[in-house]
Amino acid sequence: MSNYNFAYLDEQTKRMIRRAILKGLAIPGYQVPFASREMPMPYGWGTGGVQVSAAVLTPEDTFKVIDQGADDTTNAVSIRTFFERTAGVETTTATCDATVIQTRHRIPEEALQEGQILVYQVPIPEPLRFLEPRESETRKMHSLEEYGLMHVKLYEDISRHGHIATSYAYPVKVEGRYVMDPSPIPKFDNPKLGDMAAIQLFGAGREQRIYALPPYTQVVSLDFEDHPFEASKADHPCGMCGATDSYLDELIVDDAGGRMFVCSDTDYCEARQAAGHKGKDAA
């Protein structure tokens, strides 16, 4: 192992972060401030998620990182390698084998189990930010449960587009109390947030906030009675594995505008292909 302390951060810092995580778990959906550290990567590359992962990892853990569902993108590979080197933990791409999964912008298709931890990278933790820029005011709104403004945002969506056009970072209400930004996951993933067996932790490095959902927490996507929430996805089967129930990425495959839809969750897609499922575009 290298000369770094286990998982890069010093023990004092990890304790501080763990305290923030425990507080977050005790008050689901509440944004706990924490003293975010400088990490050896730029803001926006998951510094919040990395610090949370560092604080929860143990030497026995198996670690997985996904970026937009994929295990093989730059961001995922570099964070995975970071913990391989600084913590020496096992890594995997298989969702079911991982004990800690750090994610950017997706929830794995395969249902998570008790004992697993899902760590989200969060760019902007404050769901009210875009309508009310004053942090002092948004904090007050959270503490007093003044969430009318959140519906103003959805109202604007419908008035402009005829339907709720917000398709990612779709706001949710946790246990009937705090309104929370679920990080920029597609709203297709929103139903998975609620009643999940695994622990969900959210880390925002630049914004210095941590929040959490303990297992089996009630999470409701905000909506209107006459414009109910819909978990939408592209209306196609996966071109590689033929799955009809997974979230799809649209790929442009040639200069003539040819395109195909494939699962954004690479592990899910590969596992299905290995089991013999085949889509129309599979070689």
């Binding site: 009318g148 519906h151 103003v152 604007e156 419908i158 209107f224 006459d226």
Partner: peptide, 15 residues
């Protein structure tokens, strides 16, 4: 949206 805000603030949920 400006006019509706107060309605939504007191619980109106029907667009």
């Amino acid at each position: 949206g400006n006019v509706g805000e107060r309605l939504m603030a007191v619980g109106a949920r029907h667009y």
